[in-house]
Amino acid sequence: MKSLILKDLYNIGHNIKSMLFMFAVFACIFIFSSNIEGYIFSCAILCSMMVVTTFAFDDNSKWVRHALIMPVSKKDLVAGKFFILAIFCGAGSLLGLTVASVSGLIMKKFTFGPADISSLLILTLAAFVAALIFGSLSIPLVFKFGTEKGRMLLLISFMIPAAICFGIYQLLVFLGVVFTDRLVFMLLCFSPFIALAWCYVMYRISYGIFAKQEY
């Protein structure tokens, strides 16, 4: 597993300059328009998309043929993609949080009192969870359809969880549930567990697809 993650980190390391450039552009757009929340979410989601890029590198070098002759199982190989996704989402969220905090401090948008800090941390957690949920749907899609089609289906992978969340929200509103601040806070605290459960389902689906494939 460690070797699989290391390989993805080395591979993606060659894209780091272009990624940093994109983060800088996003920083200019979001932070100067005072949309710090948008910036943290953008960083997390942009980083989650890098998992598809790792698949492109794998396809390009026919990596899976080599990986399967190493002492790693097919389950390890699939699980490795979810671990690397979690790393990317974590790195993106933290980068967003850092840049947003520093910008907020420079532009004097935060007082950095306990309320501001907790609000930023909760926002970062929400961004991490959202990126993880979106990114984990892209993994079975790429396993099933390959990188090229998978890229095109990336939009779907971002729309499906959004549609599901919106549907659940509408259903709850229809059932008379009122979204108070307390309820939203509780949902946010509970969201990492929802993301974990979602990732597990996506992992099972991905493994089911991958196990049938030939290399």
């Binding site: 026919k62 080599h66 190493m70």
Partner: peptide, 24 residues
Amino acid sequence: FDDINFYAALTPAQIGKISAAAYQ
């Protein structure tokens, strides 16, 4: 195999580290 199955931008040193992490 008849071709190398590592991404072209990797170095032998990095391949060594990846392999070291895989093989006891």
